[in-house]
């Protein structure tokens, strides 16, 4: 879980324990947490794709060079 989101989740749970809030506040918090987690996964995916694109751009995608020179890059680029 994301560190900031974890703080919010933990504090929400503590407030529930203290009967400051009820479960109808816990559930939206859980939803927010899930949305944040999905957004984090999406962001990580976008990062890896972008980094791969960058590597390809820097090293070359093998189309101009010989394929045998950069097998790793080709494999990574193939994932796009």
């Amino acid at each position: 879980m994301l560190p900031l989101r974890k703080i919010i989740s933990d504090e929400t749970q503590l407030r529930y324990n203290a009967m400051q809030i009820d479960m109808f506040s816990l559930l939206p918090e859980a939803r927010q947490r899930i949305i944040a987690t999905i957004a984090a996964i999406e962001a990580k995916r976008a990062f890896w794709l972008a980094e791969t694109d960058l590597t390809v751009a820097v090293v070359g995608d093998g189309a101009v060079g010989t394929a045998s020179d950069t097998p790793r890059t080709v494999a990574a680029a193939g994932g796009d």
């Binding site: 407030r15 203290a18 009967m19 400051q20 809030i21 009820d22 109808f24």
Partner: peptide, 10 residues
């Protein structure tokens, strides 16, 4: 002591 006054009744 400290408590939420909007907590639903179950």
């Amino acid at each position: 002591n400290s408590m939420g006054h909007d907590v639903k009744t179950f």
